[in-house]
Write a protein that binds this DNA or RNA. Sequence first.
DNA 1: CTGAAAGCGCTTACAG
DNA 2: CTGAAAGCGCTTACAG
Lengths: 331, 331
Amino acid sequence: MPTLKDVAKLANVDASTVSRALNNSAHVHPETRKRVFAAVEKLSYEPNVLAQGLRKGKRHTIGIVVPRLQLTMFGDAVQAAEQRAQELGYATIVCNTDDDPKRERECLDRLGNGFVDGLIIAATGKNTRAIQTLAAGGMSIVQFLRRDNIGLSSVTADFEACAYEGARYLADKGCRHIGLINGPASLGPYRERLSGYRRAMDELGLEEILVSDSLQANSFEYGYRSTTRLLSEHPELDALMAAVDVQGMGAMKALREQELRYPEDVRLMSLTGYLVGSLLETPMTSMEVPTEEISRKAVDTLVELIDAPADKKPSRSSLVFPPMLVERRSG
Amino acid sequence: MPTLKDVAKLANVDASTVSRALNNSAHVHPETRKRVFAAVEKLSYEPNVLAQGLRKGKRHTIGIVVPRLQLTMFGDAVQAAEQRAQELGYATIVCNTDDDPKRERECLDRLGNGFVDGLIIAATGKNTRAIQTLAAGGMSIVQFLRRDNIGLSSVTADFEACAYEGARYLADKGCRHIGLINGPASLGPYRERLSGYRRAMDELGLEEILVSDSLQANSFEYGYRSTTRLLSEHPELDALMAAVDVQGMGAMKALREQELRYPEDVRLMSLTGYLVGSLLETPMTSMEVPTEEISRKAVDTLVELIDAPADKKPSRSSLVFPPMLVERRSG
DNA sequence: CTGAAAGCGCTTACAG
DNA sequence: CTGAAAGCGCTTACAG
């Protein structure tokens, strides 16, 4: 592996000049510059990220904090984020919190300890203080896929619209008893879905029928139990919206057990669909969200933040992507 | 962040002594040692991985090369590998090849270029030369979940047993026309499943009925098309083994279209099941493989390889984990 | 516009 | 058993 010195020797200049030419950090005579780049080319020189990092106190690593990967949009999200990070020359460390505030806290402690240059995070909402402290201490942080109003940039989807448009769609199909399987309102996306659902129910003059526990909501089990409960309390149910796909899969199980067909007896849809829903035996009607785009954008935003000099960090930004309705068999 | 120097000052020794004490790289007087560790404790000192890396030419980053993450065992595998890597102080870079040799080549080029200390890889089998060259050039490489006989350590599952035991199970249930949806024999796991299937068919005196194209086999579409084809050529089919879950999901779609019920008309099972199969509307009978354990072990093996001094690298090892049958509804 | 020097935080021959 | 010194590959004030 050639080093700066090798390039400098070949170009007949000092290493510092090579550095300046490469980083555009000061005026370098065009002639010199040309020689430098020729030498770089010739040796196919690549700067040693480690040495750069040591010098500048950067590790070229970003942390990704998400609840889990399996069968969730976060799996896709992390894949896209890792790819984008790699394109930008960053390694990644992925940390799964399982939506457990304690585990999240551990992740934050570990990553905060000088392990990474920045963080993209889909937080539980229970460690706001710790996250703000980290940010105040100079850590670059971007929220993605989940947003709380904690003074940090975010890239998310419009979950309010997911629920609102989902409900309008079901109402258009003639449903009058539209249930919602949601999750704890302490989490931004659930709170937003709830508010979209309420807006729609209000406009339509329909009764709100919903489950919104503060439990581990992003699961098959939760979808199953919630559906069973809703059906027993509201046998008139003719439509059901699940916040995420695995909940919808759990709902399917519950409906089958009650010998209810979907969509014939109960229209079923997911409010945040991803690949798996389309491959089910009964493909699931879904609101879909551009997860990959969101993740890539979050990484871009983070890297800009990391790279900006301390005295002119970009100001806080909030990006929200709209969802799209995909009609399939279940609803 | 405290540095070696801070520790040295507090312990009243030279930085080099602290280094030796911490790394156990030379005799340090027990008394001195005690002082050093007390200081480390007091300052809660953590060595700067970047500086260590620069000194030793290590990046503390490992590359993970897999075909894809979505709806495959590789998703689980990568999650487990990342976690283990993190425990060992390594960052990760994940590269998806989509089982395309060209993309795999790009991954290898990029990662080979001094970006990582080592690689765990589930290869396409089409870049054997490039991989061997990398290894010969000093890159530490461990194969995981897929093994080719290319002189490198591996940690895999016994896919031969998956297919053999799967077929025996179906035969025990009374099936006499057992089909196999496989994939290209150029890939180790498919080759091994094929051989297990053949062994079982041979022992049972049954006809081989199989699809084994050299296409993108790890997909819903492939499972769907293959099943349609097998059914048209062999209407007598009474059992079907899919190499992986998504193929099985595609098979379900094809069976439904032919108005065949599973398991009543055709018993269906996956030979490498993971979570998704258990959550389907018709939960899938599967051979299951300890993906997480395999991944963690692969990372351990790799890190040992990386950390060993050049003159005494551990010799090649091959670890194979046995599968387990999980009976569910589909078969 | 460019060179010489110092230093990021560590490790490791080299003396003693 | 321990200290002083050199150096991994880079960047950045400091002169000029």
